[in-house]
Simulated scan of single mutants.
Amino acid sequence: MLTPLPDALATEDGKRTVSLNEIVVRKAWRGRGVAWQLHEAWLTHRAEERVTLLVNPLNGDGAVQAVHEAWGYRKLGDQQPFADSPVFSVMLRSVAQADA
């Protein structure tokens, strides 16, 4: 993290948080809710309490991050995993959502 998180938020026990790497949907299937359905189906089988992911806020002029926000994620801060990588938004949400 470029700015450290509070200990209560960053503390891990190996079972608290799952990390999502990518969901890729073929172009012909985009805009139909397929990625969201895959995402929610995957989370249904998770035992962790929360899920985290990295989003490049420049992708799609911010549209990719906005999609994740619509899915219930909130931005925690920024991370640059490598010196030559983009700065990513670190996003987090609960695995189970009341409105899901």
Rank of each mutant, 00 (worst) to 15 (best):
A70R: 15
V55F: 08
Q79S: 03
D61T: 05
D84V: 07
A10P: 05
G33K: 00
S19P: 11
H68M: 05
H45I: 02
D84P: 01
H39E: 09
P81K: 13
Q79K: 02
T52W: 12
F82M: 08
N21W: 09
N56I: 09
L9A: 09
D84S: 13
S85I: 02
E40N: 07
E49M: 10
Y73D: 03
V34T: 06
H45D: 10
Q79R: 05
K75Q: 09
A83P: 09
P4M: 03
A28Q: 10
N56K: 05
W42Y: 13
G14K: 04
A96D: 04
T11W: 00
P6H: 01
R30C: 11
A28V: 06
V24R: 10
D7I: 14
P6N: 08
V95F: 09
H45C: 09
H45A: 13
H39R: 05
A96W: 13
M1T: 00
L92A: 15
G77K: 00
L20C: 00
E48N: 03
K27H: 07
K15V: 08
N56T: 02
A8I: 01
V95H: 11
W71F: 03
P86C: 06
K75N: 06
P86I: 01
G72I: 11
T17Q: 12
Q65A: 11
Q97F: 10
L9M: 08
V25F: 14
E22D: 12
D61G: 06
L76Q: 06
Y73C: 01
G60V: 07
M1S: 04
R93E: 05
G72R: 06
R16W: 11
F88V: 02
